[in-house]
Amino acid sequence: MSRPASTPRHPVVTGDLYAEVRTFYARQMRRVDSLDIEGFADTFVEDGEVVHAGGRRQRGRAEMIAGMRAALPRYRDIAVRHWFDHLLIEPDPADPDVIRTSYYTLVTQTDRSGKVCFQPTFTVADVLVRRDGRLLTLSRVIEQDSPVEPAVGSEERSAA
């Protein structure tokens, strides 16, 4: 017996697009982790925007570069790694050059002795755009994770 075709609730993500987005983030984060500030900023459109947890905004590559340079002393004698997971990719059905992504991130810092410190976890929402065949970040919103209140009535369901 055949089953009727169903329409996906979300746009379908091809394997090629998934691999392209994952590779984009791997390259972007390797740049920031290696303190290649200009290279990292170059993964954003010229007037791109980052909204950091807490609400601080940086607009444009020049402002991003200045902010990262000011933060460099915090990264003396440590190796920083950004770890992403649970990546959602949602192509814009109206514009094939726009991709919305969301993912969880964990940042680790390793000192010279090998001791690893974990930073708070975050949820990141990006808008990526394709310009001249290249993915770039148009906007990024970073929110620090915090506990979620259970839905009303969920205690009764979980106790059953």
Score class of each variant (00 low, 15 high):
S2M: 10
V124C: 10
S113D: 12
E156V: 07
L87V: 14
F118L: 14
S6A: 13
T123I: 12
T123E: 09
I37M: 07
R69A: 04
T101G: 08
L135K: 14
F40M: 04
D132S: 12
V50H: 01
S154R: 08
A79M: 03
D145M: 12
H86W: 08
E38S: 06
R140L: 04
P73H: 07
E149L: 11
R69C: 05
F24P: 06
S2N: 11
S2F: 07
E90T: 15
V148C: 02
T101E: 03
R30S: 09
E49D: 06
V127S: 05
L135A: 11
M68F: 13
C117Y: 02
T7F: 07
G67L: 06
E156A: 11
E155P: 08
L88K: 11
L128W: 01
R3K: 00
I142H: 01
R56Y: 12
I78F: 10
D16N: 07
Q58E: 15
T123F: 05
G67C: 14
P150H: 02
T137K: 14
Y104P: 00
F24N: 05
F118M: 13
A94F: 09
R130D: 04
L106K: 12
I37C: 03
L88V: 14
V21R: 13
Y18E: 10
G55E: 09
E46S: 13
L35D: 09
D92M: 10
S139P: 02
A19W: 04
Y25K: 02
A19L: 12
L72S: 09
P91F: 13
P91D: 07
E156P: 00
R22L: 11
H82R: 03
